[in-house]
Design a protein around this nucleic acid. Sequence first.
DNA 1: CGTTGACTTAGAGTTAACTCTAACTTGTAT
DNA 2: ATACAAGTTAGAGTTAACTCTAAGTCAACG
Lengths: 118, 118
Amino acid sequence: MNMKEFSSLVGLSSYTLRYYEKIGLLKNVQRNSSGHRVYTSKDLRWIEFVKRLKDTAMPLEEIQEYARLREAGSSSVLQRQALLEKHKRNLIDHITQQQSHLADLEDKIDLYKKGKVR
Amino acid sequence: MNMKEFSSLVGLSSYTLRYYEKIGLLKNVQRNSSGHRVYTSKDLRWIEFVKRLKDTAMPLEEIQEYARLREAGSSSVLQRQALLEKHKRNLIDHITQQQSHLADLEDKIDLYKKGKVR
DNA sequence: CGTTGACTTAGAGTTAACTCTAACTTGTAT
DNA sequence: ATACAAGTTAGAGTTAACTCTAAGTCAACG
């Protein structure tokens, strides 16, 4: 799969994909005879995973750390699990806080609906 | 209330508070005889509201827009309500997506727990 | 065979949201 | 009175995460 197809498939610009490779988020991307990148379904699954971590507010630096651990092989399995479990706790806290903010926002909108805001 | 007290009460640095004032997020802050800022409980309620919008990922530019509308008085009530209702829809979408990501993350962690990750 | 479009690189530029610095003034404690 | 903490301003610097530019290569099309 070439740059253009992969880019539109994952919804990231070619700039961003090259940037991710540059900072080590995406490794060992294959090249064809003319030096162009060739993406595989393995790259697709990895980028989708990276996107989910990013969308749940994990900094790229921490995703890099996960990538580095993965690169290190089986010996890092426990560290990777711990990293994801920490992220899960953060995510749960985040969702809880967003729900509380939503309730506050609904209260505020109710004041507008009742004409109590001037 | 002086800068230091207000700063620690709202959890924003003095730098940030001055910055918010500079960009028009915080208006008409009172001054004492020596030119130092004096914050009121009205400022406190407003900043807490701003913080909630910010924590729910509303860009400062859009919060500025709300501030501007508020400044314009009663004639902008409907616009402000519409802005908050749009934000509410965004927030609900965000929470839904985060919950879905959480489920995916839990699945991934389960793979680790079952020793299915190498 | 020449243009078009997609690709390559290194490195510069952008954006949002702060965060800090320099130079200075003012209020409080010893 | 003098040190020290806290405040002031304008404007410069930082950070994360892109985003773009310049200069070039390469394959396919008419």
